[in-house]
Design a protein around this nucleic acid. Structure first.
Lengths: 141, 141
DNA sequence: TGCATACTCTAGTAAGTCGATAGGGTAAAA
DNA sequence: TTTTACCCTATCGACTTACTAGAGTATGCA
């Protein structure tokens, strides 16, 4: 299950991507239009900023803005940042690999086998989808 | 992330599927060979039994056994039973659908859009993979 | 220059849920 | 009478979500 953090984060990023100019958008604006608890959103945007996804401007007329072109932001990056591993099991994760304590041999593990396939498929989707794709309201994926 | 419940459940089912005859296998046997806490495994097998996946026999020579042919058990069934919804968001779930409280329109929701695609892909994999496929140690998926 | 405003940032915390495990006891089959 | 499935309860820790209060900082205006 996707955490609300990730869900809200994606929505906020899409909101920013839909902004035509790259002017800062205030947290309160995003919070209201996307129906997200303002304080919670605050912490989410903060992690996005710390990881080089967003820039921020303080003071009057301040807010958050995208640092890169939405076309250049694949969903893999967003997901790994907000949700963590894309794989359903650590033993098939690329970026968050961890050996299972209980499993003696990954090569013959049934769970490993199928989850590897699922990960490959999911990864490909996220890789080929950018923030710009999601921001387009008309085009279906 | 896959819960350990699901992971262990799949392992146990595969263990039973690999059994040539359909004789009952004791919990303790599965627990030892698969490195699963016996008590935890107990509760997992119980839910599998209650949902018509396994049969059980009490007393000496008792244990758990598969009720159906492994070829007839798609992973969708197993996943829904153990893990719950396959979709990452309730609003794109087939069997566990729930409308998002914050989202005014699913048709234009970016999260909905991409997660629908992920679900379709994952679902197809689980649908086309049976317990028999996982039980085969040699064939890769 | 300096004050007020409008923002981001930080920290702490509380409630709720979930995962995993442990203990003890009952019922049925051989 | 032994073996084994079955059932109930309780705990502990971790994580998620969300709220609260305030500190820090840039901007615009007088």
């Amino acid at each position: 299950m996707l955490s609300k953090k990730t869900k809200y984060g994606i929505k906020a990023l899409v909101h920013l991507a839909r902004q035509e100019d790259r002017k800062p958008v205030q947290i309160s604006t995003i919070s209201k239009t996307e129906n997200i608890s303002q304080k919670f959103l605050e912490s989410i945007l903060l992690t996005l900023r710390k990881n080089g996804m967003l820039g921020s401007k303080k003071g009057k007329g301040g807010g958050y803005y995208l640092l890169r072109d939405p076309k250049e932001i694949p969903m893999t990056t967003v997901m790994r940042l907000l949700e963590g591993p894309i794989a359903m099991v650590p033993c098939v994760s690329l970026n968050f690999y961890e050996k299972c304590a209980d499993c003696p041999d990954e090569a013959t593990c049934a769970v490993n086998k199928i989850m590897l396939k699922v990960r490959d498929n999911t990864l490909e989707i996220f890789r080929n989808t950018t923030l710009a794709d999601l921001s387009d309201t008309h085009v279906t994926l």
